[in-house]
């Protein structure tokens, strides 16, 4: 039962929606403060974020580096474009694999929803070439989920 809703908008965008049981102030901070970011923004099990820089102001720089502890790793750089605490973050980011992927402009909004927060994150969908590169970075852990999905999809075929 995943609360995460992931949809595509045409060929160019991905929209992620998720609710959190905490006010927008707390969710916003968790997205902006390095000490908090590196506790959760880690991807698959076993990865860590040895470098986490987020300058926290418009024009400020972002740099996140991930490591799988076995010599594998990649990093992301970006710039903050607009901030409206605690409701909106606009930033641009690119992965370095190590060649930089095309810039991905991400708009993240946090709207109070009862005692919690509804988050919406809208980002650009990387082109086919970039997606292949991203899949090849050792983040292919998604494969298991893929096959679980394949199994669900095939349910009606049996």
């Amino acid at each position: 039962m995943s609360k995460l809703v992931l949809t595509t908008e045409g060929d160019t965008h991905v929209v992620v929606r998720r609710r959190f049981e905490a006010p927008p102030e707390a969710v916003y901070r968790a997205h902006m403060e390095p000490a908090l970011i590196r506790q959760w923004c880690l991807g698959p099990e076993g990865w860590t974020m040895p470098v986490c820089i987020n300058e926290g102001k418009p024009g400020g720089k972002i740099r996140y580096e991930w490591s799988n502890g076995q010599g594998g790793g990649f990093f992301l750089t970006g710039e903050i474009l607009e901030l409206e605490p605690p409701h909106r973050i606009v930033h641009v980011e690119r992965m370095h694999l190590p060649e930089p992927t095309p810039d991905n402009r991400v708009v993240t909004t946090f709207v109070a929803d009862g005692t919690g927060t509804q988050m919406t994150m809208r980002m650009s969908l990387p082109d086919a070439e970039t997606r292949k590169a991203m899949l090849a970075t050792g983040m292919a852990h998604g494969m298991e989920a893929s096959y679980a999905r394949l199994e669900r999809v095939s349910g009606w075929a049996s």
Binding site: L6, A30, W40, G43, R131, M134, L135, H141, G142
Partner: peptide, 24 residues
């Protein structure tokens, strides 16, 4: 590869946000 990418993204985000739930 689009499905794979989206599932990779979903997998990574799902795990991330579970950790964020715990942190919050």
């Amino acid at each position: 590869e689009l499905d794979q990418y989206l599932e990779m993204l979903r997998g990574a985000l799902t795990r991330n946000y579970q950790r964020l739930d715990e942190l919050l």
